[in-house]
C-alpha cells in the first residue's frame, strides 16, 4: 500500500515537473524571440548558425533524399506495373515525397543531425559556465545564443526539405525512367497533372516550417534546461531526438488531417 502511494506520489511529481518544463520552454521561446538582437549583429550570427544547422546537414539530407526517391521508384514500379499503369509512377513518387516523406524524413534527419548538435552545444556552454559568464558580462545569452539558433532552425529546415523533395523526385526519375524504362513524357506530365502547387507543394513547405519550429525549440530548450554535467548533456541530447521525433510524427498526423483530411 505504502509502495502504491509512493508510486502515485512519484507520478504526480512527474506530471508537475513536465508541466513546469513546458512552462519554462514557453518562457524561453518568448524571452529569446522578444529581444532579438539588433539587425546588424543578428545577420552575422544568423549566417553562422545557418551554416551550422543548414549547410552541415545538407549532405545527409541530399543522400537520404536520393535513396528514398530511388526506393519509391523501384517499389512503385513493381506495384504499378502489375496494373499496367507505370505511367502513374511520377505522380506516385511526387505526391508521396512532397506531402509526407519529404517534410517528415527531412525533419527526423534534421532532429538527429542539427537538433542533437544544438542541444549538446548549448548544454556544453552551460556546463562550462559560458552562458553564466556571458550573462555576467551584461550580454543576454537568450539574445546572443538562443535567438539566432532558433531563427536559423526555422529558416534551415524548410530549405532542406525542398532540396530533399527535389533530389528525391530526381532519384525516382533515375530509377523509373533511366533504369526501368518508364516513358519520360508520361512520367513528367502525369506528375504535373496531379501535383497541385498550392496544395501539395505549399502544404509540404508549411509542414516543414512547423517541424523546423518544433525541432529547434525542443533542441534549444533541452540544451538550455540540461543539468550542467556530462550525464546531463547526454540525457538532454537523447531527449531532443526522442521528443522531436515523436512531436514530428504526431504533428504530421494532425497537419495531414487538417490539410488533406476532408477528401
Amino acid at each position: 500500500m505504502n509502495n502504491f502511494l509512493m508510486q502515485l506520489n512519484q507520478f504526480r511529481n512527474n506530471i508537475t515537473e513536465s508541466l513546469a518544463a513546458i512552462g519554462r520552454a514557453a518562457l524561453l521561446l518568448i524571452q529569446s524571440l522578444w529581444f532579438i538582437p539588433d539587425s546588424k549583429k543578428i545577420i552575422s550570427l544568423l549566417i553562422k548558425q545557418i551554416y551550422q544547422e543548414g549547410v552541415l546537414s545538407l549532405l545527409i539530407i541530399v543522400l537520404s533524399g536520393l535513396f528514398i526517391g530511388m526506393v519509391i521508384g523501384l517499389e512503385g514500379y513493381n506495384v504499378l506495373s502489375g496494373f499496367g499503369s507505370e505511367s502513374a509512377l511520377g505522380q506516385m513518387i511526387a505526391l508521396s515525397i512532397l506531402r509526407e516523406l519529404g517534410p517528415v524524413v527531412a525533419a527526423l534527419l534534421f532532429a538527429g543531425r542539427a537538433g542533437s548538435a544544438l542541444t549538446a552545444e548549448i548544454g556544453h556552454m552551460k556546463t562550462t559556465e559560458q552562458l553564466a559568464s556571458m550573462e555576467m558580462m551584461g550580454v543576454d545569452p537568450l539574445r546572443r545564443i538562443i535567438a539566432p539558433r532558433l531563427l536559423a532552425g526555422f529558416i534551415s529546415l524548410p530549405i532542406l526539405t525542398m532540396i530533399f523533395s527535389v533530389v528525391g523526385i530526381w532519384g525516382g526519375y533515375l530509377v523509373g525512367v533511366r533504369w526501368l524504362g518508364v516513358y519520360e513524357g508520361s512520367f513528367w506530365s502525369n506528375m504535373q497533372a496531379s501535383v497541385e502547387f498550392g496544395e501539395d507543394v505549399f502544404n509540404g513547405i508549411i509542414k516543414s516550417l512547423v517541424f523546423g519550429f518544433i525541432v529547434t525549440w525542443i533542441a534549444v530548450f533541452q540544451g538550455y534546461d540540461s543539468k550542467p554535467t556530462s550525464l546531463g548533456i547526454s540525457n538532454a541530447t537523447t531527449k531532443t531526438v526522442v521528443f522531436s521525433s515523436l512531436a514530428i510524427l504526431a504533428m504530421d498526423f494532425i497537419l495531414t488531417a487538417l490539410m488533406f483530411g476532408d477528401h
Binding site: 556544453h124 556552454m125 562550462t128 559556465e129 559560458q130 553564466a132 559568464s133 556571458m134
Partner: peptide
C-alpha cells in the same frame, strides 16, 4: 569563473 568559462 572557476573554470575560466572561455567561449570555446
Amino acid at each position: 569563473f572557476q573554470s575560466g568559462a572561455l567561449f570555446s
